[in-house]
Design a protein around this nucleic acid. Structure first.
Lengths: 169, 169
DNA sequence: TCACTCACGCAATAATGTTGCGCTGCGCCG
DNA sequence: CGGCGCAGCGCAACATTATTGCGTGAGTGA
């Protein structure tokens, strides 16, 4: 499966994907070609899906982020699929999670200006017959916006169970 | 400011940042060097902050995403700064938004296994004296996870090419 | 032991990013 | 009106980086 080097590489790539293969190799103790082959492996395994440029929302004028908490009326599998497809159609939907708990969906919108936000919310939530109710939380400060996923529990003083440190020389 | 080509480029880069300069140039009708210079401009303006690799959470075993809705006890500027710094320290915090409305913060956690999730939630929310209460919504399906920001309102049925800049509101 | 596999490093090659240069269109002021 | 300067472009040389083929050594199981 994934060894220590893989975890390190994935963490590095999630932080900055424009580093050079040599650079990455130096950091994890591998040659550029070895790094490339590992990365290609992640790609073909579907683990690493693609690279994206990250914009600083603070530097995009008029951008409004908002978090919408949605409760669905009829939670059948069929309607669920339909609604998720509907969410995926909208480019303003930055993130959408189907959740368990007090709500059914958490949707993060990124819109340009209040009018735009209103239009999208109306279209996705207010006008949808399957939405029972929804609440909008406007983002005052995007403290952190990222999509980095930990591939293993970070070592916080103790070693994760079942993991053996390999020799690194 | 930003012209049409800029908007197109930023949209393309946010979708896939590993495309070649020539490739991008062909799409927007520019030479590779011209594309590069524009991208460099975005960087030095702080608009484009960095490139990251995106992992598919579905392919990372044991990963649990959760959305935490947090209500703060004492919302002074000083305590706000302290709490945000605390959130930024934790690598498990994927996204954190300070919001207005029914809650004060929306925090998305990415953890490896339930035990990890519990430990982090306890540390960030339960044990913090300034957190009045919080709710955790566990993510059943990450319908979409992205950070693409629209730089202008997408043309929806209206004239796209005209770009007649009037008072926009 | 032997055969097999897998991942590695090295080195050649292909592709891409990067920079300097001259050109052009445009707005501005003499 | 005409010259000036700026800003952005394309082109082409150049530097850097990604990519691939090949030989090697470690690990594994028959």
């Amino acid at each position: 499966m994934l060894d220590d080097v893989d975890h390190d590489l994935l963490a590095l790539l999630q932080r900055d994907a424009s580093r050079t293969l040599r650079d990455l190799g130096d950091e994890v103790g591998l040659s550029p070609s070895a790094v490339l082959r590992r990365v290609q492996r992640y790609r073909s395994a579907g683990l690493l899906s693609h690279n994206v440029a990250v914009l600083d929302p603070r530097h995009v004028p008029e951008v409004i982020l908002s978090v919408c908490l949605v409760t669905i009326e009829d939670d059948t599998p069929e309607e669920g699929r339909r609604y998720r497809a509907r969410l995926l159609e909208a480019p303003e939907v930055q993130q959408a999670y189907e959740v368990s708990g007090d709500y059914d969906y958490v949707v993060v919108l990124a819109c340009v200006g209040m009018r735009h936000e209103n239009e999208v919310a109306k279209r996705l939530f207010q006008q949808d017959p399957n939405v029972k109710r929804y609440t909008t939380l406007f983002v005052l400060d995007p403290v952190r916006t990222g999509v980095a996923v930990p591939t293993r529990e970070p070592a916080r003083g103790r070693a994760p169970a079942g993991e053996v440190r390999g020799a690194t020389d």
